[in-house]
Amino acid sequence: MGTYKLILNGKTLKGETTTEAVDAATAEKVFKQYANDNGVDGEWTYDDATKTFTVTE
């Protein structure tokens, strides 16, 4: 398990959240659902060194 971070750079929603997941693929699924639930759809990037996903609208 590891802690993964999501940085939201949406047009109307900005912020950060974290999740505990077994791997990056699992964290990505959780974060994409979170972003979708909050109406954020954009370009995704992932930094393996910091376990950080970023979505920018």
Rank of each mutant, 00 (worst) to 15 (best):
N38K: 14
V40F: 11
T45Y: 11
K5G: 03
L13C: 13
I7P: 00
V30I: 15
K32A: 05
Q33K: 15
D23L: 04
A35D: 00
Y4T: 00
L8C: 06
N36H: 15
N38Y: 13
F31L: 05
D48E: 14
L6I: 03
L6Q: 00
Y34W: 15
T19L: 09
D37T: 08
N9A: 08
A49Q: 12
E57G: 05
V40D: 02
Y34G: 01
F53I: 01
T3M: 12
T12F: 15
K14C: 09
M1W: 14
V40Q: 04
K51N: 07
K14E: 05
K14I: 08
N9L: 15
A24N: 05
E16A: 09
V30E: 07
T17H: 14
N38L: 15
T52M: 04
T45W: 09
V40N: 03
T56Q: 07
M1A: 10
A35F: 03
K32H: 09
N36I: 15
K14A: 07
E57C: 05
T18L: 09
T18D: 05
T3E: 08
F31A: 01
G42V: 02
V40K: 02
A35K: 01
Y34L: 06
T3D: 05
F53S: 00
A35I: 05
G10D: 03
D23F: 03
T56F: 08
Y46F: 07
Y46Q: 01
Y4V: 01
Y4W: 06
G2N: 15
N36P: 02
D48A: 14
V30K: 08
A27G: 02
V55R: 01
K32F: 06
L8N: 02
K5L: 07
L13Y: 15
D37H: 08
A24I: 08
N38W: 14
E57F: 09
I7R: 05
Y34V: 05
T56H: 08
L13E: 07
A24L: 08
A49F: 09
E57H: 06
K29R: 14
K14L: 07
T17V: 15
D23R: 03
V40P: 02
F31H: 01
K14G: 05
N36L: 15
A27C: 02
K29I: 11
D41E: 14
T3S: 07
A21R: 03
V55C: 08
I7W: 04
A49W: 09
T26M: 13
D48Y: 09
K32W: 09
N36E: 13
T52C: 06
D47C: 08
F31T: 00
A25G: 09
A27S: 02
E43A: 11
K11S: 12
A21Y: 03
